[in-house]
Design a protein around this nucleic acid. Structure first.
Lengths: 200, 200
DNA sequence: TTATGTCTATCTAAAGATAGGCATTTAATA
DNA sequence: TATTAAATGCCTATCTTTAGATAGACATAA
C-alpha cells in the first residue's frame, strides 16, 4: 500500500515480480521506445494486473529511474576497473564493445541510452540526470582505457577525444546495423577499435 | 473531404498550411519522438484545429510518410551528385557533415532518422521502407564520395566500409553532443572526416 | 457549383494513476 | 506456543486525460 521508495537495498535480493517488471520494461523500451511502454503491457507480460505494477513502481518515472540505476550498476560491474597494462586495457575495451554488440545483434536494438535520448524531453528531471551520468561514466571510463593504452596514468584531452570517437562509433554502429538490418555492419564499423593497442 | 493521396505533385507549390504542419511535425518528432507527436499539438502550433490536420494528412502514418519523402528530397537536393575531383569530393563530404551538424547544434537533436529508428516498431510498413531507403541512400552516396577521394570510379567494399564508419560517426557524434549537452563534441568527433582527403 | 479548407462535436481506445478490498506471510506479544 | 498485528502483494473497479479518427456543417474561392 505504501512504499517508502522505489530504491532497493543494494544487496537485498530483489522481489522476483519487481525484477520481471523491470526486465519487461527494458525490453519494451528497447523495442518500442519509452513513451510507448505501458504499464498494462508490462503487466500482461509479467502475468499480473497494471495496478500491481503501480504497487512496485508508483509512477512511470520511478520505473525508469530504477531501470537506469540498474543499468549503470550492471555496466559498472561488468566493466571492472581496467588494468593499466596495455593488453589488459585493450581487452577491457573489447569487452565494452561487446556490450554494445550484444544489444545490437541479439536484441536488434540501439543502446538503451540512445533510445531514451531520442525521447529526452519526456523524461523526468532525475532520469535525465541519470542518463547524463551514464554517458559521462562511459566516456570517462573509455578515456582512462585509452590513456592506459599508451601507458599514461591520467587521460589527456586527446584521450578524451579518442574516447568520444569510440563512443560515437559504437552508438552509430548500433544505429546503422539496425537501420540496414545487417548485423555485420556493427563489426565492420567497430573493428578498428578492437586492435587499437597496435596503432596507438 | 476526400483526398486521393497525401502525395503532392513534385513541382506544384505546396499548401502553406500543409507545409506548416509538416514543419511543426518534424520539430515535434525531433524534440519529443514520434509517438509523443500529436495532431492536437501540431494543430495548436499551426493555429488550426486537429480535424484540419487530418484533412491534410488523414492518418499519422500519412504525415510521417510525407515527412520522410520530403526529408529524402531535401537531402538529395542538398547533396548534388558529387564531383569526381578529390577536392570537390571532400567539399561534398564536408557539406554532408554540415547537415548533421546543423540538426545537432542548432536544433539540439539527434538526426530524424535516428529518432525514428528508436521507435521503429511503431512505424507503418511504408515508413519503415522509406527510412530504410534513407539510410541506404546516404551510405551509397558516402561510398561514392569515398571512392572519389582516391580517384576511383566505383566504390569498393572497403569504400563502403569507410562510408559506414563515417555515417556511424555522424550519428554517434550527434548522440554524444546531445547527451553531454556539449556541442563541441560533435566537431571533435567528426573532425577527422573533414580532412579525409589528406589521409586516404 | 464544385472543390477547398476549416470548424464543432463526438466516438473510441489507450494509458497513467488511485482507492479500497482481500488474501497470505511475517513479526510481535501475551 | 497460540494469537494478534502488520506488512506484502495482488486484485477489481474506476477516474481522468490524451489522442487518433470521423461526420457533418459552413464559408469561400475557382
Amino acid at each position: 500500500m505504501d512504499m517508502r521508495s522505489t530504491l532497493d537495498a543494494p544487496d537485498k535480493p530483489m522481489n522476483p515480480t519487481k525484477l520481471a517488471i523491470m526486465d519487461a520494461a527494458e525490453q519494451s523500451i528497447l523495442k518500442h521506445g519509452y513513451k510507448a511502454m505501458s504499464f498494462r503491457d508490462l503487466a500482461a507480460q509479467v502475468g499480473i494486473k497494471s495496478a500491481s505494477v503501480h504497487y512496485h513502481f508508483p509512477t512511470k518515472a520511478d520505473l525508469l529511474q530504477a531501470l537506469l540505476v540498474r543499468h549503470q550498476s550492471t555496466l559498472e560491474a561488468a566493466m571492472k576497473p581496467p588494468k593499466k597494462k596495455r593488453q589488459a586495457a585493450q581487452k577491457a575495451l573489447n569487452q565494452f564493445i561487446e556490450c554494445y554488440r550484444d544489444i545490437t545483434i541479439s536484441r536488434g536494438s540501439m543502446a538503451l541510452s540512445a533510445v531514451l535520448l531520442a525521447e529526452h524531453s519526456l523524461l523526468d528531471a532525475q532520469s535525465k540526470e541519470q542518463l547524463n551520468d551514464l554517458y559521462q561514466w562511459q566516456c570517462d571510463w573509455l578515456a582512462t582505457i585509452v590513456s592506459y593504452l599508451h601507458k599514461a596514468e591520467v587521460p589527456t584531452d586527446s584521450d578524451r577525444q579518442y574516447a568520444s570517437q569510440i563512443m560515437a562509433s559504437l552508438h552509430g554502429a548500433s544505429i546503422l546495423a539496425k537501420a540496414t538490418q545487417d548485423a555485420d555492419i556493427f563489426d565492420q564499423v567497430t573493428q578498428p577499435w578492437r586492435t587499437l593497442v597496435d596503432r596507438i
